[in-house]
């Protein structure tokens, strides 16, 4: 059944990582990504690998799930690797027709690939250990300062959580419309790409109409229950930092400092 799909890709388990405040995990992911791109030396990559391995270990999520996310970027990764490999200038290692593979090219290509893989795995760790709800809550709270420059933070978070609630409903509806149209002889399978896209019209039009109707109903229901924006609103489940969250922040800071040092020393060592 379509309604049974889990969104995002939350993997329920009982680990410290699951219990952490979503803001900590957001910050952690940011720190990790920054560290990947800011520090570019072999030593720094070893550091990042160790950190990632430790986090995966703590999360109690099977590695298989972490790697799932990689499937979707294989094409992108190949593209980056190929471009870097052939289009970087430097000392030529060997030639393939008019294309030259350089030493620098190999280096960047390898590092780029590692970076991309780590980026995806790093963010998977967050989405696998955080429920979509917590994630929205965390984002709302983390982005609150932006409210001062008139970014509608509460509204964005509300939209995200409503989207999360309605995705399964709309999926189910798509399924229903599809079957109804197929019963009348619609064909969603055969034909080329353009024909297939055209065939989607009898599916998309009713789906859009129903989505707008739902939006209208929902807006009315929200108003009827006194919704008038984020102002003067209290929270039923507010986010509060606990001891473990503070420790996690400290560890993150420690990681950043260590990475910085390792990178520096590694860099200097490379110079000598």
């Amino acid at each position: 059944m379509l309604r049974d799909i889990t969104l995002g890709q939350y993997y329920p388990a009982n680990s410290v990582l699951h219990k952490l405040d979503p803001r900590v995990k957001l910050a952690g992911t940011m720190v990790f990504i920054v560290s990947l791109f800011a520090f570019r030396s072999a030593e720094a990559y070893i550091g990042a690998t160790l950190f990632l391995a430790a986090v995966i270990r703590i999360s109690k999520v099977p590695l298989k799930f972490m790697l799932k996310g990689l499937k979707s970027i294989i094409f992108l990764m190949m593209l980056t690797v190929v471009f870097n490999l052939f289009l970087t200038r430097g000392t030529v290692v060997f030639r393939l027709g008019f294309l030259a593979v350089t030493e620098e090219g190999i280096e960047t290509a390898v590092f780029m690939a590692i970076r991309l893989v780590y980026l995806i795995i790093g963010s998977s760790v967050m989405t696998l250990t955080t429920t979509p709800n917590d994630l929205t809550d965390g984002l709302e709270k983390a982005m609150r300062p932006l409210g001062k420059v008139r970014v509608p933070v509460h509204e964005i978070a509300m939209m995200m959580s409503i989207a999360l609630r309605f995705i399964p409903i709309l999926l189910e509806e798509t399924d229903k419309i599809m079957k109804a149209q197929m019963a009348r002889g619609a064909d969603f399978e055969s034909g080329g790409l353009i024909q297939k896209a055209k065939n989607m019209i009898p599916l998309l039009v009713p789906l859009f109409i129903s989505a707008f109707r739902r939006a209208n109903d929902l807006a009315m229901a929200m108003e009827a229950r006194g919704y008038h924006g984020g102002e003067g609103r209290t929270k039923m489940k507010p986010l509060v930092y606990r001891g473990r969250d503070k420790i996690a922040y400290l560890l993150l800071l420690l990681y950043l400092v260590l990475m910085f040092l390792v990178n520096r020393i590694g860099f200097f060592a490379g110079l000598i």
């Binding site: 409903i169 209290t234 039923m236 489940k237």
Partner: peptide
């Protein structure tokens, strides 16, 4: 379906009181 806002039952019931502060 079109009047439940929360993604969990108790959150939805709390929506009205949250709005009232």
């Amino acid at each position: 379906d079109n009047q439940i806002i929360g993604t969990i039952v108790d959150e939805d019931v709390g929506f009205g009181p949250e709005n009232m502060g």
